[in-house]
Design a protein around this nucleic acid. Structure first.
Lengths: 227, 227
DNA sequence: TAGATTGTTAATCGATTAACAATC
DNA sequence: TAGATTGTTAATCGATTAACAATC
């Protein structure tokens, strides 16, 4: 759901559209699988068949960031994998906090893959007094009142918002004020973010509604969605 | 991440692009809020300011489905809300099953809003024997071996896949074979679906990677993403 | 009626695909 | 070298925005 034309400006004035950026994790995943299967090289055509995109798009996408292939040969899988890793910023570690120790918050904390990728949860906050002091996957839940203090003395890269939508606006304000530059928003409400703050929304209800639309053949639609 | 050009064909041969469909839940949400606040009418311009999209886009989007406004007046909030509800197929109930009783599966089962919207969980399956027979929010976990039998004798609209990616392909195959037409896929792998089956992917790792890209200012990017 | 705002056509803009020269 | 495949430019396609006649 694009509010505003979504672009990322590179310092050399070349614009990388969000459509391109959103495809990178998928390339990264396919290349990772090939790497595991000991596949050494891949042409844009090979990859296009596997991924069901055009070879043209793959080459265009990659060439936004540099020339990683070789004419007549294709791409070295490991090299390209590592390049995309760098482009995506996955060579560093990130500190994440969760605000809202409900069910979704808990599942994220227990999801082992994030740590493997360099996304480390360092703190959890909740508004409910009865949750404060309890441990989730080794992290003690703090009261939301501590949030601002915590942010002042700790570096946080990404705040994950899993609280009710009523509190989202005020919490987002604190988090942004304290310099957090990335927000993963699970609450079903929009966040007003200034430039320089990146927001990713995960709206499960929206996803179900889109499914619902697709399923609703009673009104005569024929469906052909993929994403 | 569009694999294939994403369109939905209406029976009158007009194509509704997925970009349009994906915006509908957001319109629906804003109209719902207005309704709660007793706002009776809204012009495309009013709405465009609130939602930070162009008025033109709103009118174009809506006119894919019919003429719901009135010149010189705008749109009746309640009427438009109900129209979008109908378009999205939210006037009926859906039966959902969850395959994978892990943390994400559990949080979805406990998420009260789905029921309110007509999305009812009717069964849960898992491969782990120790989980079978336990209750989650009043639903007994069944062994995955029962899945095919269950699908044969019960109507299921949407299967939510929250298991490990290793089992996703085989489970998806069963589910599709048994006639389930909607899949909400949380596992980090692509599902090969035939025409007529709608898939929504929720790839949390991808979302984090996109955030990571946006945060990575060290390589000189200036960021301006919204979604 | 006059003002406002839709529905819709036309113009623009951006993203995808095709084509091909460069070159490994 | 000959064949393959990239990087990149040009062509196409689709989505967004602008404009305005219709009309409430």
């Amino acid at each position: 759901m694009d509010l505003i034309r979504q672009v990322i400006f590179m310092d050399n004035n070349k614009r990388i559209s969000l459509s391109v950026v959103k495809r990178l994790p998928r390339y990264y995943r396919y290349l990772g699988e090939m790497l595991e299967n000991n596949i050494k090289r891949v042409s844009s055509q090979d990859l296009s068949k596997k991924m069901k995109v055009t070879a043209s798009q793959i080459r265009q996408d990659l060439n936004n960031f540099g020339s990683f292939g070789q004419q007549g040969y294709g791409y070295n899988v490991e090299l390209l994998y590592k390049e995309i890793q760098k482009i995506l910023g996955l060579t560093r570690q990130y500190n994440l906090i969760i605000i809202g120790a409900g069910n979704i918050g808990k599942s994220l904390l227990n999801y082992i893959n994030f740590k493997k990728r360099g996304f480390n949860f360092t703190a959890v906050f909740d508004i409910k007094p009865e949750l404060v002091g309890t441990q989730i996957n080794g992290i003690e839940v703090q009261h939301i009142g501590n949030l601002e203090y915590y942010l002042t003395y700790n570096t946080v890269d990404i705040a994950v918002l899993t609280m009710t939508k009523e509190n989202t606006a005020s919490v987002a304000e604190i988090v942004i004020k304290c310099g957090v530059k990335g927000i993963l928003n699970f609450s079903h409400i929009d966040i007003n973010a200034p430039n320089g703050v990146v927001i990713e929304n995960v709206h499960l209800t929206d996803s179900l509604m889109i499914l619902s639309y697709g399923l609703n053949e009673s009104c005569g639609y024929e469906i052909n969605i993929r994403d």
